[in-house]
Every structure is written in C-alpha cells, then in structure tokens.
C-alpha cells in the first residue's frame, strides 16, 4: 500500500479519524438490525452519513494534502453533497412510511 509513505504528522490523525469513522458507520448500520420498528430504524443510518462520512472525508483530505504537499480540498464537495442530499431521502422515506398502511 502506498499509505506508508505518508508523513507521521498526517498519518496519526488520519488513522484516528478512519477508526472513528469506521466504527460510527458500523454502529449506525448495526442499528438497522437491532431496532425493531421502522420509525426507530430510520434514525440509525444518519450516523454513518453525517459524522462517519465526515471523519473519513477529513482523513482523505489530510492524506491527499500530505501526499501532494499542497492543500487538496476537493473532498469537501462530497461532504457538501452528502449533507445536502441525505436529509432529502430521509424526509421522503419518513413521509412515505406515514402515508403507507402498516403491515
């Protein structure tokens, strides 16, 4: 893997962010299985799409900036896009589950 050539000042925070982001995404997705009601389940994946994705994107910004030796910020576009779009899907699903008969 190419990741070994990353300098230490970027590798340590990036590693911590990757671990935290992976765990948050895992717990959020685990909620899909552990919660018994759809109305409770709809809250769980928001964890992965807010802070989980945010941590991994921040790690990606750190590593690619350190490898290119200049600030690389185009990962922020994905962050903006996910923040703008994931609430739309959640709201549509919430309204759909309210209007559909339960069963």
């Amino acid at each position: 893997m190419n990741a070994m050539s990353v300098p230490l000042w970027a590798a340590l925070p990036a590693a911590a962010l990757l671990v935290v982001g992976g765990l948050l995404t895992l717990v959020g997705s685990l909620g899909l299985l552990r919660l018994h009601d759809f109305h409770a389940r709809i809250h769980a994946p928001t964890m992965g799409s807010t802070l989980g994705a945010g941590c991994i994107l921040l790690a990606s910004i750190l590593v690619s900036s350190a490898l290119a030796q200049r600030p690389v910020v185009h990962e922020l576009l994905i962050a903006v896009f996910v923040v703008l779009t994931s609430p739309v899907t959640a709201m549509l699903l919430m309204r759909a589950s309210l209007y559909r008969p339960r069963g």
């Binding site: 609430p87 709201m91 309204r95 309210l98």
Partner: peptide, 15 residues
Amino acid sequence: LAMIITGCPGSVWAG
C-alpha cells in the same frame, strides 16, 4: 431548518 433537524441523528422532519 429541515436540513439541520434531519441531519442530526435522532430526529427527522416528519411534516
């Protein structure tokens, strides 16, 4: 406001 509320885990805008 809808984006903030739905973006925070634990609360979803329902109507």
